[in-house]
C-alpha cells in the first residue's frame, strides 16, 4: 500500500482529481458543508453512508443494508474512481468502506479530510463552567464492528494500541467496558505534531491520569496528528513485533487521520481487530476551517 499525502492551507493548494463516486457522511458543521460542496464539483456521483452501531446496519444512499452486505452493495463501484470524504464520515464508516473497497479489488482510492482550526477543548479546570452543567448526548460505548471484531478473553494474548485524543473519558471507558484488555500490553499513541502547536498537551494532560491509574505499560508512540501514513508505518512495526499467537487490536479514539491510518491498516490485515466507541458527533463541535488533506492510496491491494 502506498500512501501519498497532500496538504494545503487552502482548497486551491491541493492537486485535485475528479472521481466517479464520493462516499460521504452527513455534514453537521461548517467544515462538513464546505468540504461536501468542494467535492460535489469533483465527483459525478455522491452517496451518503451512515452506520448504525446498534442495528449493525449501514444506510447507503436510500438503501439500508446489513453492514456485512456493504461489499456486495459497493460491488458496482468496481472500476470506478472513488473518493472517501473523511470529514463527514465517522471512523466506523471509513473502516467498513475501506474493507469493502479492498475486497472489491480497488487498486487505488483517495481520502479527503478538512481538519478543524479549533474545537471545544475540554481541559481539566478547577473552576466549573456552564458546560460542566450542560447535558450531552449518550455515547453508545464500545461495540464491535462487523468484519473488524476481535473476541477478547481473559486468557487471550492481545496487544492493543490506543490512538488518543483529548477526551480522557473514552480511554477510561475502554478499560471500564473491556476489562479483558491487559494494561501491560496496551500502548498509547499521541498525535505529535498536533494540528496546532499546544494541542498535543491537551491529549497528554487529559489522558495521563488514566494511563497512570491503569498502569498501561505497552509503550508510548507519537505520530503526526494529520498523518495516516505515520500511523500505518507504526502499525506495521507493531505488527511485526507481535508474539506467536498474539492478536493486534486498535482503538482509534483520537484524530480522524489517525483513524484513517487504522482503517487502512485494518483493511490490509483482516486478522487485526478494532475497538470503537461510536461517539455521536455534536453539531458545531469544531470551529472554522483548518488545512485540507488529500490522501491518495495506490497499490491498495498491497500490505
Amino acid at each position: 500500500m502506498i500512501i501519498t499525502l497532500q496538504e494545503g492551507r487552502e482548497e486551491a493548494e491541493i492537486d485535485w482529481k475528479h472521481w466517479d463516486l464520493t462516499l460521504h457522511g452527513k455534514a453537521i458543521d461548517d467544515r462538513g458543508f464546505v468540504v461536501l460542496e468542494s467535492v460535489r464539483h469533483r465527483a459525478i456521483e455522491m452517496t451518503e453512508v451512515v452506520y448504525d452501531p446498534f442495528q449493525l446496519k449501514v444506510a447507503v444512499g436510500n438503501e439500508r443494508i446489513a453492514a456485512d452486505d456493504l461489499t456486495e452493495t459497493l460491488a458496482t463501484t468496481r472500476g470506478m474512481s472513488v473518493l472517501i470524504e473523511a470529514t463527514t464520515l465517522g471512523f466506523a464508516e471509513i473502516v467498513l468502506i475501506c474493507k469493502a473497497l479492498r475486497e472489491i479489488k480497488h487498486d487505488s482510492i483517495d481520502i479527503v479530510y478538512l481538519e478543524p482550526s479549533g474545537y471545544q477543548r475540554e481541559l481539566r479546570h478547577p473552576l466549573l463552567k456552564r458546560r460542566d452543567f450542560e447535558l450531552s448526548s449518550e455515547v453508545p460505548g464500545y461495540r464491535a464492528i462487523p468484519g473488524s471484531a476481535v473476541l477478547l478473553g481473559d486468557r487471550k494474548k492481545v496487544r492493543s494500541v490506543f490512538f488518543l485524543g483529548y477526551e480522557e473519558a473514552r480511554l477510561r471507558r475502554a478499560f471500564e467496558e473491556l476489562q479483558m484488555l491487559s494494561p501491560a500490553s496496551t500502548a498509547v499513541a499521541f498525535g505529535v505534531p498536533a494540528f496546532r502547536a499546544g494541542w498535543e498537551m491537551d491529549a497528554m494532560a487529559n489522558n495521563i491520569s488514566v494511563i497512570r491509574e491503569q498502569n498501561m505499560r505497552g509503550g508510548v508512540h507519537f505520530c503526526g496528528a494529520e498523518n495516516p501514513l505515520a500511523v500505518f508505518e507504526l502499525l506495521c512495526e507493531v505488527h511485526r513485533g507481535l508474539d506467536q499467537g498474539e492478536r493486534l487490536v486498535l482503538a482509534p479514539i483520537g484524530t480522524k487521520p489517525h483513524g484513517i491510518g487504522v482503517a487502512l491498516f485494518a483493511a490490509a490485515h483482516s486478522e487485526v481487530g478494532v475497538l470503537y466507541d461510536h461517539p455521536l458527533r455534536a453539531p458545531g463541535r469544531t470551529t472554522d476551517l483548518g488545512h485540507w488533506h488529500l490522501f491518495s492510496i495506490d497499490d491498495f491491494q498491497g500490505g
Binding site: 481539566r124 460542566d132 447535558l135 450531552s136 455515547v139 480522557e168 473519558a169 477510561r172 467496558e177 491520569s209
Partner: peptide
C-alpha cells in the same frame, strides 16, 4: 476529585451522570 471524572465512563449515560452529580452535589 480524581474519581469524579470517572463517572463519564459509566455506560452510555456516563456524561450525563457526571453532569447530574455536579448539579446535585452543588
Amino acid at each position: 476529585s480524581d474519581l469524579l471524572p470517572e463517572i463519564r465512563s459509566f455506560g452510555p449515560q456516563g456524561n450525563n451522570l457526571h453532569t447530574f452529580v455536579l448539579r446535585l452535589g452543588s
